[in-house]
Amino acid sequence: MTHLKQIRAAQPTQDGAGVKIRRIHDFGGSLDPFLMVDELKASVKEDYIGGFPPHPHRGFETLTYIIHGGLTHEDSMGNKGEVHAGDAQWMSAGHGVIHSEMPLTDSDGLHGFQIWINLPAKRKLDAPRYKDLRAAEMGQLDWQGGQIKSIAGTWQTHAGEVQGGLPQLGEGAAMADLQLEAGQTFKVTLNPNQQLLAYVYQGSLNAGVKTGQLGTFVANDQNQIELTSEEASGLLLMTGPALKEPVVHYGPFVMNTEEEIHQAIKDYQTGQLTQIPVVE
């Protein structure tokens, strides 16, 4: 039987230039390998139009998934891109990147997610990478009463296997968008010892997880999890092997030690954050 381990409610806050978001974060390991779930949802232009001006990252990955509206991206690697409804944007900050994400001015509202995924110590100082992922590149399965779209990773479901368009997320993490009609049950088989995070952005589950909440589910002896909708529901699903490494977090930097955080701050202040060290 599927076990609901925990329910967390997203808390309203602001980030960037006053963008209103709802956030769940845990740098203590409960969401490992995930660190933060931000739901960007605003219909009034003043609540999102300021966007996220240039800011740094080091030591983790971000995956931005758009449900409605759109964002433009520019970064210190020279990348420029746009994502629209149904698209995703992946960035592995590695050693360091400075980027901006600005809402499309012709959008009528913005709804999407940005997820932080931790990197293992051995990859935290890798060269940064970036990819725009179009909706058409994502695997999709439809069945009577439901649909799953795999953004990243491979999902073993009761309706079959579906593979995401993103070849790698963290260290084997996976993410999907699940749609269920009222009273429908979705079954997924996970790798051993992995938990499932399910963020309900619309509707509710019989397990008691409602809109704006994140449920952490533990699989049964067959490594299976069942989710049943109370009403028509939309969920962002996340899973992946836990890194089980120390996490030290300061603002836009996620490392393993205090010393590494101090170095990240120093590198940013001296303009060295985006300079990949030469290995001799």
Rank of each mutant, 00 (worst) to 15 (best):
T2Y: 11
Y199F: 15
A173R: 05
T211R: 15
G234D: 01
K266F: 00
V254W: 02
N220K: 07
M255R: 02
Q272F: 08
Q263I: 05
P12R: 04
T239N: 10
V248E: 03
M238S: 00
V19I: 13
G51F: 05
S229W: 05
H3F: 07
K131C: 12
E245A: 03
G160A: 14
L180M: 07
H55A: 01
K187Y: 13
M238Q: 08
Y268R: 00
D15R: 09
G215M: 14
E101N: 10
G208L: 06
G145A: 05
S204G: 10
Q89N: 01
V248D: 05
T239L: 00
F27N: 00
Q272M: 11
F34H: 04
G78C: 00
H73P: 06
E74L: 08
T157A: 00
I21M: 15
Q179I: 12
S107Y: 02
I225T: 06
D38V: 06
Q194S: 12
S204F: 06
P33I: 07
L205M: 00
L273G: 04
P56A: 04
G172V: 05
V200L: 13
Y199L: 11
M255P: 00
Y65I: 09
N206G: 07
T239S: 13
E171H: 08
N79G: 13
A198N: 12
H111E: 08
E39K: 15
P246G: 06
P53R: 05
H262S: 13
G86P: 12
N256W: 12
R129S: 12
Q222E: 14
W143A: 06
V209D: 02
P128V: 00
F253G: 01
M138S: 10
R123N: 11
L71K: 12
A232T: 10
V19M: 13
E260F: 06
G153V: 01
S100W: 08
Q269C: 05
H262P: 01
V44M: 12
H55S: 04
E74W: 13
Q140C: 15
A93E: 14
K122S: 15
S204L: 12
S107C: 07
T105R: 14
I265C: 06
K45F: 14
V278Q: 13
A232N: 06
G172N: 02
G165R: 08
V279C: 07
H95W: 10
T239G: 04
I151T: 02
A136Q: 14
F253I: 10
T274V: 13
V254R: 03
L4H: 02
H111R: 10
S100G: 06
G70R: 04
V19H: 09
G112K: 03
E137Q: 14
I24C: 04
A242P: 13
I151F: 00
A264L: 01
T72N: 14
G146F: 03
D126Y: 07
S30G: 11
L166T: 01
G16A: 07
R8D: 00
L205R: 02
L227N: 06
A173D: 14
G112L: 03
K5H: 11
K210F: 09
K187E: 15
K41L: 11
I115E: 01
E280T: 11
V279S: 15
E46D: 08
S150E: 00
A173N: 14
Q6V: 09
V247C: 03
P252W: 02
W116Y: 03
G172E: 10
E231T: 15
G212M: 01
H262K: 14
T105P: 11
